[in-house]
């Protein structure tokens, strides 16, 4: 009898804790919550745009989760997110599923090398050769006799996908390469490895130089904003936000996209060292 009593007591305590949480959640819905997320490259833009946007739309609470382009888009399709950031072009399968991309900014990919490398410019063809493993020594591209250590990003990185698409036509990169799993890791591995070469989103180029690496020109063009805009810098790409179906007039997602494309939104793009659209 007493045993039953204590068990019910314990259950009661546990269930009350659970219900208490439930109540908290229902009381929060006075303000409207939206979950956005996706590309880590789009994250700085989203994270500075959201507070400004929330300021204009009281009772709206938006979160942006940094998940990576692919995960963001798949969660958008699952309905977990209502808007996804992407740093790569959508796959056909994603477009067929109803995803609609909107360009919100431009970005370039910067190539950096370890300070021991004497080369300061590479052509797109040379870059392709280096990253696919055909060129293995710096003396083949006008440098000193030093082995080239290629540094890649992880398999699912948007930057890697863009780099592969733009620079080496989706040919598989050299397998025997160092693999860095985030931007900071790229910078520290470039700095730590003699003869190394790696790439990073243009906005993060400074962390390579801060870590002690140097940035290269590509086809004799410097990796900077002006050169992406006038289409002379070859390794550049668009950043997108993605919605399921065309953004609906009057929805918070449509309002957010309009905000990103507005003058104020584009200023935020620029503040985060990406390239604004016009």
């Amino acid at each position: 009898m007493k045993k039953i009593l204590t068990i019910t007591l314990v259950l009661l305590v546990i269930s009350s804790a659970v219900f208490a949480q439930g109540n908290q959640e229902t009381s929060k819905t006075v303000t409207e919550n939206y979950s956005f997320g996706g590309s880590s490259t789009v994250a700085p833009i989203a994270n500075s745009a959201i507070p400004a946007f929330e300021g204009k739309n009281p009772n709206t609470k938006i979160s942006y989760e940094t998940l990576g382009s692919s995960t963001g888009i798949s969660q958008l399709m699952e309905g977990t997110l209502t808007l996804a950031g992407s740093s790569r072009v959508l796959k056909d399968s994603e477009i067929d599923a109803g995803c609609v991309p909107t360009v919100i900014a431009l970005d370039g990919i910067t190539v950096g090398v370890n300070e021991t490398v004497t080369v300061s410019n590479l052509s797109m063809q040379q870059l392709k050769g280096i990253f696919t493993g055909e060129i293995t020594n710096w003396n083949e591209v006008g440098g000193s006799n030093q082995k080239i250590e290629v540094i890649l990003r992880d398999e699912a990185s948007g930057t890697r996908a863009s780099f592969e698409e733009i620079v080496h036509n989706k040919i598989a990169p050299k397998q025997n390469s160092i693999v860095a799993h985030e931007n900071g890791d790229v910078a520290s591995k470039i700095a730590a490895t003699p003869g190394s070469i790696g790439y990073i989103g243009m906005a993060f180029g400074s962390i390579i130089t801060e870590a002690g690496g140097t940035l290269l020109t590509v086809d004799n063009v410097e990796a900077d904003v002006a050169n992406v805009l006038n289409n002379t810098y070859p390794i550049s790409r668009s950043l997108y936000v993605v919605t399921m179906g065309n953004p609906v007039e009057g929805s918070i997602e449509k309002a957010f996209i309009d905000f990103l494309l507005s003058e104020e939104g584009q200023e935020i793009v620029e503040e985060n060292q990406f390239i604004k659209l016009n």
Binding site: S70, A156, H181
Partner: peptide, 17 residues
């Protein structure tokens, strides 16, 4: 250079689908 089982998980996990 090489990659262990644990490294393989952590490297791609954040973005894999």
């Amino acid at each position: 250079m090489g990659r262990t089982l644990t490294m393989n998980i952590i490297t791609d996990m954040a973005y894999a689908t």
